[in-house]
């Protein structure tokens, strides 16, 4: 009886200590607010960077495809190629630091906006390559059929090629967006309080890394799994339409 009682006591103690630990690291002193702030910033940066990335990506892909096909936009094509090469050829963390410490050195600007710009510019290069591959995956006959009806290049792209290309590249795009969402953690390096930085701030107060890191990891997982579900839903919707 006494042994049982001791075991029970140990179990209670164990959970008590976990709760204490959780309370100390997350709830005490409203520390969870860091996580909320981090979550908010991560989402804001990822969302707007994706939008910037898509805009830049489509633009660059069209410039480069137009050059390949019609020999137009020679200079713009050169600039686009250079941009893609620079972005893909240097570490993202370095790009972030260059943008923050050099380009925006003497400008008073919200650091989250710096993050949005840096991640958007970075994503644009990768998205452009994905979209370019998507455009090239469409049978040439589609373009010719569009031309033969009197549609010009931009109308052919907009109404015939891009809608089909997007369907083909949706998995690759989804992959890119998930990577982007996770890569916002690099922002911690220049002091953006996003999820990873938030957990680091809490841990540095309590010297206890367990809950801050695990909770943030779970949040990332929920976000990325949700995102991939969303993308596979879109894939299914598009493939129901035809084929």
């Amino acid at each position: 009886m006494e042994v049982l009682f001791n075991v029970w006591g140990e179990i209670v103690k164990f959970f008590q200590s976990i709760w204490d630990n959780f309370y100390q690291t997350i709830i005490y002193d409203n520390r969870y607010l860091y996580i909320l702030e981090g979550l908010f910033n991560t989402l804001i940066i990822a969302l707007f960077a994706v939008i910037i990335g898509i805009v830049i990506g489509v633009l660059i892909a069209l410039i480069r495809n137009n050059y390949d096909r019609n020999n137009k936009f020679k200079l713009l094509n050169k600039i686009s190629t250079l941009y893609v090469n620079i972005i893909r050829g240097t570490p993202q963390i370095l790009q972030l630091m260059i943008i923050y410490y050099i380009i925006f050195k003497s400008v008073d600007i919200n650091i989250v906006i710096v993050g949005i710009i840096a991640f958007g510019i970075n994503s644009g290069a990768y998205v452009s390559e994905i979209i370019r591959a998507g455009i090239e995956s469409i049978d040439n006959g589609q373009i010719e059929a569009g031309y033969s009806l009197g549609l010009n290049y931009s109308k052919v792209m907009r109404y015939i090629i891009l809608p089909q290309a997007i369907k083909n590249i949706l998995p690759a795009l989804g992959n890119e967006f998930i990577t982007l969402l996770k890569d916002t953690s690099v922002g911690a390096y220049i002091g953006i309080v996003e999820l990873t930085k938030a957990s680091d701030i809490i841990a540095s107060r309590t010297y206890d890394y367990f809950f801050p890191l695990i909770i943030v990891a779970i949040i990332y997982l929920i976000l990325t799994i949700g995102l991939s579900k969303l993308i596979s839903m879109m894939e299914r919707k598009l493939s129901n339409d035809y084929c």
């Binding site: 049978d139 006959g141 589609q142 031309y147 033969s148 009806l149 009197g150 035809y242 084929c243």
Partner: peptide, 20 residues
């Protein structure tokens, strides 16, 4: 050329209908 093609229909061996 696009104005000209409006008046010049073309039918292809592989149909080239827009699948979407």
């Amino acid at each position: 050329i696009n104005k000209i093609r409006e008046k010049m229909g073309m039918v292809f061996q592989q149909f080239n209908l827009f699948p979407h």
